[in-house]
Amino acid sequence: MRNGSAFKRHLKLRKIKGGLFSTLFLGSTLVGTLVLIVLLADVLRDSAGWLDWQFLTSYPSRKPEEAGLLSAFFGSLWVMMFTALFSFPVGIGTAIYLEEYAPDNRLIRLIQMNISNLAGVPSIVYGLLGLSLFVQALALGRSILAGAMTLTLMSLPVIIIAAQEAIRSVPEAHRLGAFALGSTRWQVVRRIVLPSAFPGVLTGTILAMSRAIGEAAPIIAISALVYLTYIPTNPLDRFTVLPIQIFNWVSRPQEDFQHLAAAGIIVLLVVLLSMNAVAIFLRNRYQKRTEE
């Protein structure tokens, strides 16, 4: 049965096949990176000469050379502020309840499954919900508040799941230690669980916010395309956000508006990258402190 030379020949083939495929696997892993580089280069090239002070400080205009994204930038800022304000406490509260308080029964498992499913609902459906519930039923109009509440519902599942993971990673021994010293459940949560879960919760929230800030679909359903030449001053004001402004410019046939879109994309990506950098910075800082 043993046939040394046949085995050797076969082994050589297997090695060649293995080598080819390992190159293919590596190549596939690099496809994403390659596209990322091409995408960034393309956007940078298209925006060259358009991303200037005038662009950052002007309102949208029919004339491309006078147009800017001031109102969209502040719109995004307003919406994000309220979204973070609503979604952080509710998200962390839900996670604490599910991890520290909830009994292990059918209902709770259903809530848990419901949260995973909400994370998979298309964002445009959240837009339809916001339109019916906040804009019309609660009569908030096409306002910042309606937009922020919609993005809150959309971001919650992501924040809850991240916060749950962070809370779960707190060692059980720490909790038992505190209980043994006569602490109540809330004292254990506030003094033991939250401090060490905080960096994870914060990172999850910032990442959810950076996803929300790039979302266009739900905001289109709520706010449509508006032509805003003022900075909103009140949460019930109409608003527009960066991705919508970009979408608006992309949708126009004239070449110059494509350049504006590219410049807007650079601004949006810079905002996203800084948020991610802050998340990484905070995580490292807090991690160091809790590990001391």
Binding site: S210, E215, V250, L272
Partner: peptide, 24 residues
């Protein structure tokens, strides 16, 4: 090195991908 790069790819707003599809 590779995993964070994939995460960046996942974090790009879809409107940016739309622009990339249409103009590139």
């Amino acid at each position: 090195v590779l995993k964070p790069l994939l995460e960046i790819l996942a974090g790009i707003p879809t409107v940016v991908y739309g622009y990339f599809a249409l103009t590139f």
